[in-house]
């Protein structure tokens, strides 16, 4: 199984780079995965990442993009609850990229 090394510790990932054990996640791992995705993390990025982790904690799934967009809008306001905003933060898809940085599996139904 592929691994990534962060601060001298190894973390298992799947073939696409998603963390296997989400309990192992920490901010340094997130930052490392973000660099592999060519993302420069800002407060706005972290807001989405933390939101995703809370969502997963509550519902045990990574939300579909449509569901994420709606939920972000509900929590942070309409200027953030739209796909343009989320795709600017995560150009390759808020589902795939943000979930990867957040240490979550790929959203169910995400192709």
């Amino acid at each position: 199984m592929p691994q990534i090394e962060v601060n001298g510790k190894n973390y298992e990932t799947d073939e696409e780079g998603y963390l296997i054990n989400l309990a192992e996640w920490n901010m340094d791992v997130a930052k490392y995965i973000a660099t592999t995705e060519n993302l420069t993390m800002t407060d706005n990025h972290w807001e989405v990442i933390n939101f995703l982790r809370e969502y997963y904690d509550e519902y045990q799934i990574a939300p579909a993009v449509r569901v994420l967009t709606k939920a972000i809008g509900k929590k942070f306001g309409a200027e953030k609850g739209n796909s343009q905003y989320l795709y600017e933060l995560f150009p390759y898809g808020p589902g795939k990229q943000a979930c990867k940085v957040a240490g979550l599996p790929k959203p169910t139904g995400c192709i």
């Binding site: 509550e58 519902y59 045990q60 799934i61 939300p63 579909a64 569901v67 709606k70 939920a71």
Partner: peptide, 14 residues
């Protein structure tokens, strides 16, 4: 085993 029962509460959002 993964407890998937909380996911039923997410269905509303879907």
């Amino acid at each position: 085993t993964k407890n998937f029962s909380p996911t039923f509460r997410a269905l509303d959002g879907y």
